[in-house]
Structures are given as structure tokens and as C-alpha cells.
């Protein structure tokens, strides 16, 4: 038995050693190479000024054609993130603010996600930042918001294991090879092509009376000297509104309803996402309304 316990201890020791070494190697490679996601891109920007910032989910990422702004000499950041929560939008804003990135106008897309009661980040945003958890400013963010903070911070390689889908081996190799991300973050716009069969979708029937995370976004924008512009992005004709947009308008300041601004269903990739033609049409509307 003694021999076996020694054997097990040596295996556990090897495992720990592997975890520590991999943690160091992965973190160094990811830190030293080009940002491969929007959250890390936001971190890499310092002391810059843009005319416009767009925050939101994939409904911003796929809808705001940044090149059209640039053609009008408007500098722009499209920070729409697939699957983003309002917590992610605040995180992005906070990182940009801390890095002294300034804007003249900030657009924040809102829809059913206004109803989310917590201010947590989506797994995707969280995992994009996790490699940098040992940096002071990032540690503070996770300390306040991450329920797994102790495991992620103290157990070597734990954060890479539990988020292997987004920051595992594939991401490590891509970073190591300096592989460019699929989308250019300077652009930030990812077009969708074609249109699938549009399914019926519904907005919620009720709205929460008080959103902490909305207030946080609002306050951060104001502390940056900008009054945020909130808007709801277009939906196809099959979307059942349930009076939600009106309710959103009643609780959100400076709110613009674009939910029915694209009439042609052929301009949708699916009911809540515009295709490239729809995105161009919608961007045109925004430029005409605000610039």
C-alpha cells in the first residue's frame, strides 16, 4: 500500500506540475499575442477617441455596418457581441473607460435582455477575460462578479479546463500562431447572408420595474460625459411585440424604437437578425437619424 500511495502522490504531483506549467505557458501566449476577441480588443485600446460606440448583442454585431460610417468620416467601434448580456455591455464600457477611450455618442441596444435580473457576464465574455484574471484590474472585476473566483484564481489551469471550448487548446494554438480572428475588430461588423425560414418569435409580456445593470450602464456613460442613446434593433414581421417595446420606452430614457424599421422580411437572416442587405438599410436609417 505504501508503494501505491507513493505512486499516487507522484501522479498527483506530476498533474499539479503540468497544470502550473500549462497555466504559465497559456497565459503568456495569450497575453503577448494579438487580441482574438472583442473583450480583449477593448482592453488593448488605450487613450483613443471615437465618434461613436455601439454596444449590444449579435443584433448589433450583425446590423451596424461600420464601413458606412467610415465613408461619412465618422470613427466608430461596433462592440456588439454574440450572446451578450447587459452585464457584458457594461463590462465592455467599463474596460474602455478605464483605458481612457472616449466617445461623442454611445448607442446601447436593448430588448428582452433588459429583463435579466442579474448583472452577470455571459460565459463567452467571462472566458475571454479569464486568462488575464491575475492582472490587478481584471482580478477586481472577477472578485465582485464571479462565483467561481477562488477556483479560477487559485487552482492552476482550472479556468482553461472549465472554459476549454473558448480558451482551450484550439485558442492557445491559434494565439501561438498569431492566427487572425475571423472578424476584424477594427470593423466589428459581422454580416449574415441569405435568409432562412422565419419563425414566429415573441417579446416578453411584462417588464421589470428596475434594472440595476441598466442604471450601471447609464451612470458609466454619464461619468464619461455622454448621454447614452438606447434603441431596439429591427425584428421581422413575425415577431409578436406583446406591448413590450412600449413598456421599454416608458422605463428607459432617450429610447428609440427601430423594431419595425425594416419592412421587407427578405432582409432578415432570421427573425431577430438582419442579413447584409437589411444591415445596410438599417445603418442608413441610423446615419440619417443621428448624423
Amino acid at each position: 500500500m505504501k508503494k501505491f500511495l507513493k505512486y499516487i502522490i507522484s501522479i498527483v504531483f506530476s498533474l499539479l506540475l503540468i497544470a502550473v506549467l500549462l497555466d504559465i505557458v497559456y497565459t503568456t501566449v495569450i497575453e503577448k499575442t494579438i487580441p482574438r476577441n472583442k473583450v480583449r480588443y477593448a482592453l488593448s485600446l488605450k487613450d483613443k477617441h471615437y465618434d461613436v460606440l455601439f454596444l449590444g448583442s449579435s443584433r448589433v454585431q450583425n446590423s451596424i455596418v461600420t464601413s458606412m460610417f467610415k465613408e461619412n468620416n465618422i470613427t466608430i467601434l461596433n462592440m456588439g457581441l454574440e450572446g451578450a448580456t447587459l452585464g457584458d455591455n457594461w463590462l465592455m464600457l467599463d474596460l474602455l473607460k478605464k483605458n481612457k477611450v472616449t466617445f461623442d455618442r454611445i448607442f446601447v441596444q436593448l430588448d428582452y435582455m433588459y429583463n435579466s435580473k442579474d448583472n452577470s457576464f455571459s460565459d463567452r465574455s467571462k472566458s475571454n477575460l479569464l486568462p488575464l484574471i491575475r492582472k490587478k484590474n481584471i482580478r477586481e472585476i472577477f472578485k465582485k462578479t464571479d462565483t467561481d473566483f477562488n477556483k479560477n484564481y487559485y487552482i492552476p489551469f482550472y479556468r482553461y479546463l472549465t472554459n476549454s471550448y473558448s480558451i482551450g487548446f484550439r485558442e492557445f494554438v491559434s494565439s501561438l500562431l498569431n492566427k487572425k480572428p475571423r472578424i476584424s475588430f477594427e470593423d466589428g461588423f459581422t454580416p449574415k447572408y441569405g435568409n432562412s425560414k422565419l419563425a414566429k418569435e415573441q417579446l416578453p409580456k411584462s417588464i421589470i420595474s428596475h434594472s440595476k445593470i441598466y442604471n450601471k450602464i447609464n451612470n458609466t456613460c454619464i461619468s464619461m460625459g455622454v448621454e447614452p442613446i438606447y434603441f431596439i434593433a429591427p425584428y421581422c414581421s413575425k415577431m409578436i411585440d406583446n406591448g413590450f417595446v412600449k413598456k421599454l420606452d416608458s422605463v428607459v430614457n432617450n429610447f428609440y424604437d427601430y423594431s419595425r424599421s425594416i419592412k421587407n422580411d427578405n432582409n432578415f437572416s432570421n427573425c431577430s437578425h438582419l442579413n447584409i442587405d437589411g444591415a445596410k438599410e438599417f445603418t442608413e436609417v441610423i446615419i440619417n437619424d443621428f448624423f
Binding site: I11, S14, L15, I18, A19, L22, F157, L161, T162, N163, S164, Y165, S166, G168, F169
Partner: peptide
């Protein structure tokens, strides 16, 4: 093999 498990294993899903 332990190294391969840690590096290539799917633990997030």
C-alpha cells in the same frame, strides 16, 4: 496521457 487529457479534454460542456 494526463497532459493530453488536460490540454485536449472537453470539460466545459
Amino acid at each position: 496521457v494526463l497532459l493530453l487529457i488536460i490540454m485536449l479534454g472537453v470539460f466545459s460542456n
